[in-house]
C-alpha cells in the first residue's frame, strides 16, 4: 500500500463574484522515506494541495490518505513548515519548539529531551532561553524545523522554507535539512519554484501547470544525484542536463505572450 495517496483531488475556491478552480484532478503517490518536490509556476495550486494534504481543509472532491487513513482524522502525523519561520515572538526558543507537544498534550520529559537534543544537533546550543528576534534568519528557520520535527511527524511538508533566506544560508540549510531528514528516514514534500532546489533535494519532482493546477509531468532524479548532498548535486555532471529538461518543460507551460 502506498504511504501517501492523493486521489483525484479537485479544489475550487468560492468568492462572491467568482469560483476559481485551484486544483483539477490531481492524483499522485509518495512512498515512505521518499523526498519529493512540487514545482510549478505561481498559481498552480501547490500551497492549496499542501494544505489539503496537511488536513487543514477538505478538497471539494477527492481524497487524501496517509497509510490508508484519511488525513483529516490524522493528528500530529504531518508536520508543516512555512515560508517564514513564524516562531511566536512572545515565546522563547524552548517554548517555541515544545509548542506542538504542548498542543497535542504529549509533553513528556522524554519528548522534551528529544526536542532539546534536536536543537543541539541543528547547531543551536544554548539558545533555549533566547527570543526569536535575537536570532538570525537561518537560525530561526532551523528552530522552526526543530519545532516541526519535535512531534515526530510521519510526513513533513516544506512550503518554500528557504525562499526568505539569503542564498548562502539557503544552500547551507538545504544540506542540513536533507541530511537530517535522510538520517531520520522521513518522508517529505517540498514546495518550491526553484528548479535547482527541487533537483538537488528530491528523489522525484512533480511538475504542475497553472490555472487550473494540474499535475503535468513527473521527473525521477537519477540515483547518482540522490546520493549526493544538495550542494554537491548542484555541481554534479548530470545536473545541467536535468535542469535543462525541466526548464524547457516549465517554459512550454507558460502561455505565449506572458514572457
Amino acid at each position: 500500500m502506498d504511504f501517501l495517496k492523493v486521489d483525484a483531488v479537485h479544489h475550487t475556491y468560492f468568492t462572491k463574484t467568482s469560483a476559481v478552480t485551484a486544483l483539477s484532478d490531481v492524483s499522485l503517490e509518495v512512498e515512505e522515506g521518499e523526498f519529493v518536490s512540487f514545482l510549478g509556476p505561481s498559481g498552480c495550486g501547490k500551497t492549496t494541495l499542501l494544505s489539503i494534504i496537511a488536513g487543514l481543509f477538505e478538497p471539494t472532491e477527492g481524497t487524501v490518505t496517509l497509510e490508508g487513513k484519511r488525513v483529516e482524522t490524522a493528528e500530529n502525523e504531518i508536520g508543516y513548515m512555512l515560508q517564514q519561520d513564524y516562531l511566536f515572538p512572545w515565546k522563547n526558543i524552548e517554548e517555541n519548539i515544545l509548542l506542538g507537544l504542548k498542543i497535542g498534550n504529549s509533553l513528556t520529559p522524554d519528548k522534551k529531551a528529544y526536542a532539546l537534543k534536536l536543537l543541539q544537533e541543528m547547531g543551536l546550543k544554548g539558545v533555549e532561553s533566547q527570543f526569536p528576534k535575537q536570532l538570525s534568519g537561518g537560525m530561526r528557520q532551523r528552530v522552526a524545523l526543530v519545532r516541526t520535527l519535535a512531534t515526530g511527524p510521519k510526513l513533513l511538508m516544506l512550503d518554500e522554507p528557504f525562499s526568505a533566506l539569503d542564498y548562502q544560508t539557503k544552500l547551507k540549510l538545504e544540506d542540513l535539512v536533507s541530511d537530517t531528514l535522510k538520517s531520520f528516514g522521513k518522508t517529505a514534500i517540498l514546495v518550491t519554484h526553484d528548479i535547482g532546489e527541487a533537483i538537488s533535494m528530491s528523489d522525484r519532482v512533480f511538475l504542475f501547470s497553472a490555472r487550473p493546477g494540474q499535475l503535468h509531468k513527473t521527473f525521477v532524479i537519477p540515483k547518482e544525484l540522490r546520493d549526493e548532498t544538495p550542494f554537491n548535486a548542484r555541481n554534479h555532471e548530470v545536473y545541467p542536463a536535468i535542469f535543462q529538461t525541466i526548464w524547457k518543460e516549465l517554459e512550454s507551460l507558460e502561455p505565449a505572450g506572458e514572457r
Binding site: E75, Y80, L82, I103
Partner: peptide
C-alpha cells in the same frame, strides 16, 4: 496555521 498543523 502553525497551530492548526499541530491539531490545535
Amino acid at each position: 496555521k502553525v497551530l492548526q498543523t499541530f491539531g490545535a
